[in-house]
């Protein structure tokens, strides 16, 4: 049981982060909180990829003659580059989301979801 907990702890954290993010996106009424939930969900997915690529007893993926050329000595570079670009794209899309929040506040005078729906009617 303890062994199972250690070897799968990263996936459990991923599931917790995704649950938290999804709950915030559905249940929270404040739009900024929804954005925070969105980013937490995104970090959960990034954590999933990076922890899949981590290896025991390995070093960073920069080839060094000291550690030899065997692939087993270096962490997985592929998942890292996918997530590196995902972070930068994530902040750009987060900017679009926050821009929409500011536009909505300018139009309706509130960032509470129920208040906006009332004014919308």
């Amino acid at each position: 049981m303890f062994e199972y907990l250690i070897t799968n702890y990263n996936y459990m954290v991923v599931v917790f982060l995704m649950m938290m993010g999804l709950w915030a996106m559905i249940a929270k009424k404040n739009l900024v909180k929804k954005c925070i939930g969105l980013v937490i969900f995104q970090t959960g997915i990034i954590l999933f990829y990076i922890s899949m690529g981590a290896k025991n007893n390995s070093t960073i993926p920069i080839i060094d003659p000291k550690y030899g050329e065997a692939a087993i000595n270096y962490a997985n570079p592929l998942t890292q580059i996918l997530m590196l670009t995902a972070i930068v794209v994530g902040v750009a899309t987060l900017g679009v989301g926050l821009m929409l929040v500011q536009r909505i506040y300018k139009e309706y005078g509130s960032i509470n979801e129920d208040r906006i729906l009332e004014k919308f009617k």
Binding site: N8, A54, K55, N56, N57, P61, N76, P77, L78, T79
Partner: peptide, 19 residues
Amino acid sequence: AWGDALSPVNNNVAKYYLE
């Protein structure tokens, strides 16, 4: 398992890149 160096993720194309 977390940190398994022999999992499929670490062995196909990623191994090619590293080597």
